[in-house]
């Protein structure tokens, strides 16, 4: 049915001081379990090819990333059409272990924001109380953008990813576009 599937904003983009792009369909799976348990680490390694991330970090596996969300929760980023099989595989691998896996790809929207590193941090700092200067690539910060929850991380300097709930995708896109509107450069972050 994936040919009928559309992401929240169908890849909308805005180019200003930085470029804001809705990233399209992104597979996302929530896994809740005791992250310290060997069985859980084994299951994540087997299904995602990645280690269990330390607090706030992201680990990378075969075409997948595993992001720490809470002491008992990770978010697995995978191709959209793989999400259901990741849920099924984790379910099998964790049979008998108390856990919850659920495909949340549909519940969220993802944005890619790119630009000159300092300008990118300045743009995000117009919206989030989290310290962008202190956010190193590979670390995910769950916080808010203006009035809604969001998770932000830098894939590398100059490329940020933002996840929010699907219903507020348009709001977040408008926020980021407004913050990136030409004429408002701050020149704070370097």
């Amino acid at each position: 049915m994936s040919e009928k599937a559309v992401s929240a904003l169908a890849g909308s983009a805005f180019e200003g001081d930085v470029k804001v792009t809705e990233a399209g369909l992104q597979g996302m799976v929530t896994l809740k379990a005791d992250l310290g348990a060997a069985a859980v680490a084994d299951a994540i390694a087997a299904v995602c090819g990645a280690g269990v991330p330390e607090a706030r970090r992201i680990t990378t596996g075969k075409a997948m990333q595993v992001a720490w969300m809470a002491p008992d929760e990770v978010l697995i980023l995978c191709p959209h059409d793989r999400a259901d099989s990741v849920v099924a595989d984790l379910g099998k691998a964790l049979e008998g272990v108390h856990h919850l896996t659920v495909n949340v790809s549909e519940a969220r929207a993802v944005f890619t924001v790119t630009g000159e590193a300092g300008v990118l941090k300045d743009t995000l700092s117009k919206l989030t109380p989290a310290d962008m200067a202190a956010l190193a690539p590979g670390e995910m910060r769950r916080t808010r953008l203006a009035q809604v929850a969001a998770a932000i991380w830098f894939e590398e300097a100059g490329t940020a990813r933002v996840i929010c709930f699907r219903s507020v995708a348009r709001y977040v896109f408008d926020l980021l576009s407004t913050a990136a509107r030409p004429g408002g450069k701050v020149g704070y972050h370097r």
């Binding site: 117009k126 009035q147 219903s167 348009r170 709001y171 926020l175 407004t178």
Partner: peptide, 14 residues
């Protein structure tokens, strides 16, 4: 920034 369209988040169904 909270004015006009982005005065407050507006949640939209698919």
């Amino acid at each position: 920034e909270a004015r006009g369209e982005i005065f407050q988040p507006l949640r939209r169904t698919p």
